[in-house]
Design a binder for these strands. Sequence first.
DNA 1: GATGAATGAGTCTTCATTCAT
DNA 2: TATGAATGAAGACTCATTCAT
Lengths: 225, 225, 225, 225
Amino acid sequence: MPRVAPDVRAKREGARRTQILEAATHVFSRKGFDGATISEIARAARLSEGSIYNYFRSKEDLLIHIPQHLVQPALVPLAGDAPVPATPEEAERLLRLLAGAMVDRVRVHAPFLKVFLSALPYLSPAARRSYMQLLPTYAAEVLERFLREGARRGVFRKDLNPVIAARALPGMLLMFLMTQEVLLGRQMIRHGYDEVVPEVVHIFLYGAAPREARARIRHPEGGRT
Amino acid sequence: MPRVAPDVRAKREGARRTQILEAATHVFSRKGFDGATISEIARAARLSEGSIYNYFRSKEDLLIHIPQHLVQPALVPLAGDAPVPATPEEAERLLRLLAGAMVDRVRVHAPFLKVFLSALPYLSPAARRSYMQLLPTYAAEVLERFLREGARRGVFRKDLNPVIAARALPGMLLMFLMTQEVLLGRQMIRHGYDEVVPEVVHIFLYGAAPREARARIRHPEGGRT
Amino acid sequence: MPRVAPDVRAKREGARRTQILEAATHVFSRKGFDGATISEIARAARLSEGSIYNYFRSKEDLLIHIPQHLVQPALVPLAGDAPVPATPEEAERLLRLLAGAMVDRVRVHAPFLKVFLSALPYLSPAARRSYMQLLPTYAAEVLERFLREGARRGVFRKDLNPVIAARALPGMLLMFLMTQEVLLGRQMIRHGYDEVVPEVVHIFLYGAAPREARARIRHPEGGRT
Amino acid sequence: MPRVAPDVRAKREGARRTQILEAATHVFSRKGFDGATISEIARAARLSEGSIYNYFRSKEDLLIHIPQHLVQPALVPLAGDAPVPATPEEAERLLRLLAGAMVDRVRVHAPFLKVFLSALPYLSPAARRSYMQLLPTYAAEVLERFLREGARRGVFRKDLNPVIAARALPGMLLMFLMTQEVLLGRQMIRHGYDEVVPEVVHIFLYGAAPREARARIRHPEGGRT
DNA sequence: GATGAATGAGTCTTCATTCAT
DNA sequence: TATGAATGAAGACTCATTCAT
């Protein structure tokens, strides 16, 4: 007969799994998926190699479960119920908040994202599927709705393509984040995110052209030119 | 005495190296750097394993030389001596060309970029250094100059931060390219690049806010004031 | 928690190491260091190849540890506290014992010595250092002290150079041992060690010249005058 | 038809072989037989790898032919027709010459001897046979005759065993030579060969015991005691 | 559940040897 | 004869996974 109640056991098992996944994330992010060894992960988790296999079926299985246990929760509150903006100024404020949150998220999860980028393209289809329900899509959809609603209220151009724009704004940040946080691990330009975020949001809202130029423009030529 | 003239030999060696690098790119892009085996690369190059090592010192050496032989040449002409624009309309036209070229480049070299992104974070420092002189910096610098000159001529806002902006524009594209071409290999949104490029350039130039909003704005608060 | 007590584990590990080193000595002595393969050593030790690496870091590491586990112990008691002789007759008796012991040692360890001689000149510096604290020096120093003390008591010539003499006596044996035991593995002359040892010790003590000749001689011209 | 006379060709071929064997000796002595590569030997001989195989059938074949071409000639004059000594003093003089010659020979050929010692025990039987007709036996036989003749003339003890003694004398030197020249390549004691040779010869002739001791001694107990 | 020694398949890399030129 | 690119067999070493304790 079991010596502990099933729920206690389940919780204990969950704790062990988290402990192992944290160790795995740490090692994967330093060495990469292929460069990491079970032995090192076990050491980081203060367990023996054999014990890892009591909780996960394989090394790839570890990778598959990392986002579900460690990253997913962090994503949930992202722009959970972002209010629809009433004015461009409010939009700018909200977008800055959103952009700042994205930057923070990426920086916090940079170790995991490194692994993600590195391993994703070559994982087994099963692992790929498990991974694909993650961040970018989700975040983009939230922003897409935000833009669509905003356009309806006249805060954004009526002819703005919200699908494209919802990916363009994060993309502007992505260039900095990818290069600095994920790929190289060091700052490449002399501006911090406290400068980058407002500048990027401003460009997104009002563009790089001077005010006069804007006045002359009729409409974007979205779709084919 | 040698049977083959030195120049013939050099050409033959160059051809072999290209042949091997093409095979390596192919295999790397399907299996990833760690997943690929010398044996498979040799088979793809229709050579024996040993022969690979007559031309490259190690597996990593293959990876290091891929861009120089296959990618680098394609980058050189990128916006080689882009003329400085006189009007926003001209800027828009030029930026569309540039953006379109970037998209094409990435799509053509997607297989390599997959490997690049995947392997870079965990390569040896030597290999890292060899890689860092590549695309993003180069392209960004060209664009940076373009923006700076344009601002001097009144085609772009005087208060535009060219360092940040030069990375924001490619970033907007990067989001689509990364997701679709590199990471997943399939289209995620219902718009093609012929729609994405103009929209993105338009946002970059004139922003997402409606015309009236722009008139009210003085200056961005971040970056240089 | 560990299933096996630390001391039991340590003893088990020691046994495995000895088992592997014995196998390695066996294979090395038949094939030489370079000719031996880990695979063959593993087979001789009735283990898998991988297991060897649970106990030793490399093939060279095996070689380095052979003397410590197998040979070193045998050397320690060699003439440990040989009494200083009071008469030449006693010296002759003691030197015969010493010489006989050296012969036995070399014959017992011939397989290892073959490997030692073969591999030493081309080992890595680290391995060289590890090896150099071995037999010859040690034995020579013991004998050197023996001769120096004996000379002080008038058992050996006062003008005898103990440094040189302490190497000359083992050298006489070395010629036979090297040729027969180590290099060729078969007897080259028609006399056994039971004849060689007394003859050699006698030559060492009283020389090859007849008694009368000796009486005429004053002192050697080389060494100290 | 041949473009050069057969004898010219033969001489040319001999020169090539010597050139290659010299290169091989050089490389073998630095790297050991297994550590050396044909590529490196070819480079040292200023030839291509393929050319080596026009003159020798295999790497081992190189090793086999080294003594015949390079070392053997140097051995020939060794004590070619050593005169039989008439007095111990003359014997001492001659033995010093002989010993000095041996030392010189060994030092000159130390590079080869390193290879010899290293490779011999593990060569194929064919190579072994080719090697075994070398130095030690030959030199010992010359010395053996010298001692036997000398004993007949009363210059050495009548009861001296010339077979054993003829190996003991070179052995005394061997200890120094092996350790210093072959195995370690650096001097281990503070005496040079100009001190070692006379001392060793003196010990060989008159022993390590003081004169008085000798007078008491009746005869060596050669053979079993 | 926990442990960690044992396993052996799998990889990169080396290098003697061959052979077309 | 000279060359050196091509070959492929061989070997040291790694590491995910298993399983007896």
